[in-house]
Design a binder for these strands. Structure first.
Lengths: 113, 113
DNA sequence: ACCAATGTTCGATAATAGTCGAACTATCGA
DNA sequence: TCGATAGTTCGACTATTATCGAACATTGGT
C-alpha cells in the first residue's frame, strides 16, 4: 500500500480510458465522482466486495481518470477533471451527458470546468 | 446478410460505445472514418482477416458509432457523426483529440461538425 | 499495545472478448 | 450462368477481464 502510481497527463491513452469506462461499475464511479468532488472507495461500492472495488479503482487510476490519495485510514478519490479536459477536451462532457437524462444539467458543470 | 440493424440515436449507451472504442483496431477505424466520410470494410483492414473485420464492424454498428449500407457488392461505412454529436456532445471531439498529436488539427473539423 | 476500519494483494474460477479459417450469401460483370 | 469480389456467419481456440474470499498492511482511536 505504498503511494499510488498515477500516470502523467501526457501518458494517458484514449484506448485505456475507454476500456476503463466500458464497465458499468466504473462508469458509475466516474459519474459519481463528477458530482461529489471526492469520495472514499467504500462510499461507492454497490454492495460489491472490497476486492472488486479495489480492482476497479486500480483500473481507473491506471487510465488516469481518478486520483487516489491516502488520508488517514481512508482513501480519497477524485476525478482528474482539469487534466482530462486539457488533454481530451469534450470527454468529460460526453461522459456526463447521458447521466443528465432526466436530471438537472446544471449538476454537471462542477466537473467539466 | 439482410439489412443491418442500426440502433436509434436514443438507444445508444455510453457503456457500449466505450467498449467499442476500447479496442485499438476499432478506435483506428473510427478515426479513419472521421477523416474520409465513407469507406468499405476492406479498405480498413490492417492485414487482418475479413472475419475479424466483420466482427469489429458489427460491434461498431451495435454501439451506434458506424452506419453500414450495402452499395452493390461493397458495403459503405460512415461515422454517425451528427447523431453522436447530438446525443453525446464532445465525444467525437475527444476521440479525435489524441489522433491530432503531431498532426494537423484542421483535419478533424470534418467529422465533428 | 490492541482493536476496528479501510483498502490492497493474491489466487482461483467464471465470464467475456478477440482471432482466424472455412463455409456461406449476395451482387456485379462477362 | 459462371466466376470473382465483398462481407457475414459459424465454430474452435486463446487471451483478457471480472468476481470474490482470504490473508495482509496501514492508520487512528482507546
Amino acid at each position: 500500500m505504498r503511494p499510488y502510481k498515477h500516470p502523467n497527463a501526457d501518458e494517458l491513452t484514449l484506448e485505456r480510458i475507454f476500456h476503463a469506462l466500458s464497465d458499468p461499475a466504473r462508469l458509475e464511479i466516474v459519474r459519481h465522482l463528477a458530482r461529489v468532488e471526492a469520495a472514499t472507495c467504500g462510499e461507492l461500492d454497490g454492495g460489491r466486495p472490497k476486492s472488486s472495488m479495489s480492482h476497479h479503482f486500480r483500473i481507473l487510476r491506471d487510465a488516469g481518470l481518478v486520483h487516489t490519495r491516502a488520508a488517514g485510514t481512508v482513501h480519497q478519490n477524485t476525478l482528474r477533471a482539469s487534466e482530462l479536459n486539457a488533454r481530451f477536451p469534450g470527454l468529460l462532457e460526453a461522459i456526463l451527458a447521458q447521466a443528465s437524462d432526466g436530471g438537472s444539467p446544471a449538476e454537471e458543470q462542477k466537473a467539466t470546468h
